[in-house]
Amino acid sequence: MEAVSLFFTSFGKSLPGTFAQGLIWGIMALGLYLSFKILDFADLTVDSSLATGGGVSAILITNGVNPALSLLCAFGAGMLAGAVTGLLNTKLRIPPILAGILTQLGLYSINLHIMGRPNLSLLGKAGVLSMSNNTQAIILSVIVCVALILIMYWFFGTEIGNAIRATGNNEKMARAVSINTDAMKVLCLVLSNGLVALSGGFLAQYQGYADVNMGRGAIVIGLASIIVGEVLLGRFTNFIVRLTSTIIGAIVYYVIIAFVIQLGLPSEDLKLLSAIVVAIALAVPALKKKKVKAQLIKAVAGEE
């Protein structure tokens, strides 16, 4: 009994940090929503562009640049990474997954060059948010998330935003209504990776260091957030709710992770767990269809 209460006390204590982390990764999930859901492009660039954002922000701060400004630069660096993937795909006709992997691999070296070392500590340097003050970190990230959701809602209601949605939905139709689909793809990947890198910048400042491997598996975390959000709030089709549910999905994902760690799951098994969870979640629609089909066959057979 005592063990159970001890378990929940320490789990409860870790919650604020978990929330802050979930919100910051939520920004990354918003970025992934752009490429994966709106453009229908599984963009693996994100695994490296997150670290690009973290690295850019960290190196600038250690060189005395204002932390908020460093985030803006992180956003810009991520946009460049997205542009590379977009151009590889549209101009050189490299398939989406491969284009993302190529940029991801190349970025790894670039990230090392940006930081000058694999791990860059921000010890003693103040960022816009920090683990040592979770309340402030949560408030700030909530404001950022809300602002980003509102901007995205506005943007995808504009003519260009609609053109991007049409490109992701039906490319042939988009071209037939004179949309430059190549340009829309590049633009969407640019914005997507900008958000991912921004998230990386926030993350580096929050945890007090940037690491060249900080984005490994980011795409899986982002997908998990989107899917968890859809499971929780999937019945609402409103775009604002969809975006919000993605952030909520990221928070829930991190709460689950914190919970299983508290249960004693070794942290080296975390990525395996994440992969399994996402694999199951992605398989759900197919499994559901099979079940419905089986029931239909049964029902028809029963009638006869």
Binding site: F155, G157, T158, E159, I160, N162, A163, S178
Partner: peptide, 10 residues
């Protein structure tokens, strides 16, 4: 179709 697209509402 055939006209420019900008940041006006869609």
């Amino acid at each position: 179709r055939g006209r420019g697209r900008g940041l006006k509402w869609g």
